[in-house]
């Protein structure tokens, strides 16, 4: 059985958070709930996620800040913004900050599932692309096919990434 897709949902509306979490779990997602920005940040450092559903307007740390932190902590994570503020400006802004998509509340579940699917595919694609690039780099850096050469290449790559 393949690993479940891990989703972090951040929203300050408890009822909304509970029901969407339940529905996604029923559809086979591994769901983590965060009731505000602080909790989301806490989870972001504690666990690995594939996808995140994020509300923008929240008391305390707001959606944009959480978005920035999540993108920093998780290289391949894709974030879908869910918000009642259906304005184009904030959509553009979030896209610039690296959000994958933007869904205004309320939405159709099918639309959300489709977006989640696209986001996951994008995540996988990115992961593969990056892994491919890495592989190419390792091949370029490795001198010969000896294990020692590969190890040296990996170390250099790590230094480069840092």
């Amino acid at each position: 059985m393949p690993d479940k897709i891990k989703v972090l949902i951040v929203d300050d509306e408890v009822k909304f958070l509970d029901s969407i979490a339940q529905r996604l779990e029923m559809r086979g997602f591994d769901v983590t709930k965060a009731i505000n920005g602080e909790e989301a940040v806490k989870w972001a450092t504690a666990r690995k996620f594939d996808l995140a559903l994020l509300d923008l307007k929240m008391p305390g740390i707001d959606g944009k800040q959480v978005l920035e932190i999540l993108k920093k902590e998780h290289k391949y994570l894709e974030v879908i913004i869910l918000t009642g503020h259906g304005s184009l400006d904030s959509a553009v802004e979030c896209t610039k900050l690296g959000a994958f998509s933007y869904l205004p509340k309320p939405y159709e579940i099918d639309k959300l599932l489709e977006t989640l699917k696209e986001a996951y595919e994008a995540r996988m694609r990115k992961k593969f692309e990056l892994d491919g690039i890495r592989l190419q780099k390792i091949q370029q850096l490795a001198t010969g096919n000896s294990a020692l050469g590969i190890l040296r290449a990996l170390r250099e790559l790590d230094n480069e990434e840092k």
Partner: peptide, 13 residues
Amino acid sequence: AHEINNPLAIISE
């Protein structure tokens, strides 16, 4: 819009 859309999202969910 935020005020109304949030409860609407709850209803929908």
